[in-house]
Design a protein around this nucleic acid. Structure first.
Lengths: 343, 343
DNA sequence: TTTCAACACGCAATCGATTTCGTTGCGATT
DNA sequence: AATCGCAACGAAATCGATTGCGTGTTGAAA
């Protein structure tokens, strides 16, 4: 078991100084061609790799990006991560991913951990609990220490920093409009409680779409789900005996659960009830019938997010402190769940 | 923007030495009660946090675990990560996740990166390409440098290290037996090409189950899919006009794709054809009909894996070099896809 | 022979924190 | 008065790598 080889050891073996070794490896012309070759050969032989920790300490930068997301078991977030990694790696950064598990405390812990030397900047989508408590001192503190932060998807309006979001209102509106356009007139909405920002916004879009069609919003057709873990019961009770011809669900889980409930009630999709979801994940794609949905373009979102952060990290001087909010276009993906046969 | 405060700055402000500050903060009784209080108060005020990088350099350990997985957009791996994080955090470790995107080169890069100071040990499930090339010098080198490595799921037999796997053969066997037990006699298998270890093993289990029932293996009923991205066509061609009453698919994607193809062919599940998948992900759970499947208990797998690694990391001396292979039980989850109505 | 570049290399500071081993100063003991 | 012991603190090495600057050696020019 040969331990990691350091400059010091190479120096001793070759009977030169540490500085000479370092310079030789970097190809400095300060060192004679002869010595340079010798050192390089030796380093190759022993598979020398500079110690990242030491480099980070010296350079005061780690070349890594910290990513904190609410849950890693979530297709949308993983696609975003894909985009982040793509851009990060292309720019010589690597990525540390931490999940907060939707816990406020763990989010704070993760930030402190990464902030104390492990990352140069942050990409974060806040935990459910954080949105609920509306407490974001930890993010503010991190920013005050001079670390750039970019938020995505679940952002906090009060914080002044770069953000990448989708236009959830328009997404919700276009989903609902799509149903209306397909002839639906009694469209139910299955959404989250209001403190989840994206749920609230998509709900807003739903209402706008109805208004644009001069249809009055009927609160009896709106279900706000508190406890996601047994949303099935809520949806079952909600849809029971309800006279509807369309459903807009603000996420995949609600959508497929609604589909199942409808089927149990003897309704067929899309003939009796058309259905639109949100987030273009594997569920929507593979479900039978496949689900029309609003795509958030997660990969693109990740790419833009990472690029914003890297721009901030690499702008040499404090420059102009300007913060952007990038809005990623959503697009409606039409699939079987809104496609009446013969259409 | 107050920059991060260091020991040095505190020392200067309080007009004491760096060592005094350090000792005071650690509550050393070498320092007078008076000074201790002063330093602590000051540190609290300025929100001092020791720099992790410096600590890592000094202690020659980072207290972080590097995890390398083939793809992060994969429900099974994310559940494993959940288990890893749980155990790691409970033991004061944090977790860095890198995805190799099933690329051999990226896997090597990631390892080198993390090995050069960023992590104390590794948890890895190798990329598809790595299995195909059967090249694992990078893992061997890392181990030779004294870094503990634990492999899970997609392991490499030749490497001597801790491993956590499931018994894929038995999993495949029990899935197939379940179909046979439910009366199926012509069971098709949809699997991967042979160099994917888990596919090969599950295939073996399939054959064993048939043999136990004295049914001859019919190669016409076995489909080995090379190109996952358009498995739909392959499966379509494969199932066309085939006289079968059961299908065992070695992963979720193959299972739902088969379900769709069967439906297009006018067959119903489970009445005409029963279906069993592998991996208990969201697809299996939410599909209609919900899919019977073999659960790999990803969380538990992650927990065991992390525990093995931490044990290796914390055993003080080189001790006994012994390596375990832990086999996680699989369990068959029965759902609608094998449950004939009225059963 | 003297002088002066140029060359090739080493010293030492630095990043931030820890820790061992001194080194003060002061009261107490003999 | 000399010595001892203890309390309280500082200097410096250390982890691994980088880099500006100083220095010794050499050859060649004057």
């Amino acid at each position: 078991m040969k331990q990691k080889v350091t400059l010091k050891q190479i120096a001793k073996e070759l009977d030169v100084s540490i500085s000479t070794v370092s310079k030789a490896l970097k190809g400095s012309k300060e060192i004679s061609e002869d010595t340079r070759q010798k050192v390089k050969a030796f380093a190759k032989l022993y598979n020398y790799k500079p110690n990242n920790i030491a480099l980070s300490l010296k350079n005061r930068k780690t070349k890594t990006i910290g990513v904190i997301i609410p849950e890693i078991i979530h297709h949308f977030f993983t696609t975003v991560i894909g985009g982040i990694e793509k851009v990060a790696n292309a720019n010589g950064y690597n990525v540390i991913i931490c999940s907060s598990n939707n816990s406020f405390d763990k989010e704070v812990l993760n930030m402190e951990l990464l902030a104390s030397g492990s990352a140069d900047g942050f990409i974060i989508s806040v935990a459910k609990e954080t949105q609920q408590k509306d407490d974001h001192h930890h993010i503010l503190e991190t920013m005050n220490q001079g670390m750039p932060v970019v938020m995505f998807d679940r952002v906090i309006d009060e914080l002044i920093c770069d953000k990448v979001i989708i236009d959830d209102v328009r997404g919700g509106q276009s989903a609902t409009s799509h149903l209306l356009l397909n002839g639906c007139r009694r469209v139910a909405l299955i959404t989250t409680v209001d403190y989840i920002s994206v749920g609230k916004l998509r709900t807003k879009g739903y209402k706008r779409a109805l208004m644009a069609y001069d249809i009055e919003v009927d609160d009896d057709l709106i279900l706000k789900i508190e406890d996601v873990s047994n949303c099935s019961d809520s949806i079952h009770d909600f849809l029971k005996d309800k006279d509807i011809d369309g459903v807009f669900a603000v996420n995949e889980l609600f959508a497929v659960t609604a589909a199942r409930v409808l089927k149990n009630q003897g309704k067929t999709i899309p003939e009796d009830v058309a259905l639109v979801g949100f987030t273009d994940g594997i569920l929507s794609k593979h479900f039978i019938p496949s689900l029309s949905t609003v795509s958030q373009h997660g990969v693109q979102m990740g790419e833009r997010t990472a690029q914003l952060l890297i721009d901030k990290l690499e702008k040499n001087e404090e420059g102009i402190e300007e913060y952007k909010t990038v809005i990623i276009d959503t697009s409606l993906i039409q699939r079987e769940s809104t496609q009446k046969k013969g259409n």
